[in-house]
Design a protein around this nucleic acid. Structure first.
Lengths: 227, 227
DNA sequence: CGGGATATTGACTCTTATCAATGCCCGTGG
DNA sequence: CCACGGGCATTGATAAGAGTCAATATCCCG
């Protein structure tokens, strides 16, 4: 596990950093500083729990997972971040979770000096960030309900619906993450996740083209089942 | 379950509202509008899930729980709010969780017209609110780890430590909430919570003066156990 | 002092975890 | 091009932890 941030590494040692000033239009117009583009391979660490938090991040491509570990290795993934989403905000100067690429990912890093930096941000950016953070809080509270009160089948149904909705409700999903990551997101073991996939398949609610490629056949029934 | 907010009720129908302009110094100096003081009896609803969100709230006395329900009645409490804490921020115009008084509580309500209202807030208030929200997000993520990955004993140990820390680490706790609420916070049943209290007692880590009054005898061991 | 809500404890069940074997897919190298 | 190997996934048998149902017990509050 790295103690130095990936950004710091890039800045200090590795490849020359391209500060791309004329990249594609940003969803988050008011991010005030130019971003640093970073690339991560599968399972590469964006930042680690406990590390100093000097940046906020936005996914350009790929998928990033944010997770926390217990000392004995048990892991809980709190979110998967897809392209366009920001992550890495902290209330103080340290990251209290870690972030890794699920698959090869491109990420923009924006300088963010914690509370200090916040002093100098324009109100428009603060509003945007507050909005994003409140949305994140809502997602996390929904996930509390899932982890605290839903059974394994309900959890997987909710997961597939969430992923489908975030992917444009095409009802055909290419899951970027392995069963183990799904399990750590849903508070289950990978075996149970696998069994629940089989069960949803047997019920005719999904079709598994392969382990990662899922067809959602009956959204309504899945929704009824996820609650 | 009420469909009208408690604030609206107060404003529109019930007792005359005292707009107290010279109350005790606020922790949150930059809340821009004068607050409306409200009183709630045990289990009274501050707001309901789905209701329009026109206010943010601060606990003055008592304890407030924020929770979400599944259609069949399963409940997950995402937080208990103690005096001084704010709650009720939303990203849009609706509450996506409900809030009730655990015991008789006094609460200040501050007008907050969602995104619209946010436009007019000073940056200082936005910063404060962002900070509070990020702190809330951190707490919720910690709670995800608890619900997704900790066993019953670990959950109760963590709960008692959290409550003790928030109560000034006096190692003597007066729990405001019944076993059922603790269970719904920890994702357990009230029977399991009761058994885990007994187990911690048998291990000599706590003393139960009564069901609600708990002495924390060995903080270090409890901490080791909660992780 | 009595009564209702809250809490504890016990017996048993059920869901999910654990441990283990097998299967599948994909990329690599012969 | 095919075979091999390694990661990933599925499936099975069994165990463990928490849930459920039920019977007291205790504590407030009037």
């Amino acid at each position: 596990m790295l103690t130095q941030s990936a950004v710091a590494q890039s800045l200090q040692s590795h490849h020359p950093i391209a500060i791309t000033l004329n990249r594609r239009p940003d969803t988050y117009q008011s991010v005030p500083s130019a971003g640093v583009p970073l690339t991560f391979g599968r399972n590469a660490e964006v930042y680690a729990e406990g590390e100093a938090a000097g940046y906020v991040y936005k996914v350009v491509s790929g998928v990033v997972r944010v997770s926390k570990l217990l000392p004995d290795g048990r892991r809980q993934i709190s979110a998967f971040h897809l392209p366009g989403e920001m992550f890495g905000f902290e209330a103080d100067e340290f990251h209290h979770a870690s972030a890794e690429a699920v698959v090869a990912a491109k990420v923009m890093a924006y300088k963010w000096d914690g509370a200090l930096g916040m002093e100098r941000q324009p109100a428009s950016f603060l509003r945007e960030l507050l909005h994003l953070t409140v949305l994140g809080l809502r997602h996390t509270q929904d996930h509390l309900l899932l982890l605290g009160r839903k059974n394994a089948l309900e959890r997987l149904a909710a997961f597939l619906l969430e992923m489908d909705a975030r992917n444009g409700s095409k009802h055909v999903l290419d899951l970027a993450m392995p069963r183990h990551d799904i399990a750590d997101y849903l508070g289950l073991t990978l075996e149970t996740v696998s069994r629940m996939f089989a069960e949803l398949k047997d019920m005719g609610m999904i079709k598994l083209e392969s382990a990662r490629r899922v067809h959602v056949l009956d959204v309504a029934k899945l929704q009824a089942m996820s609650a």
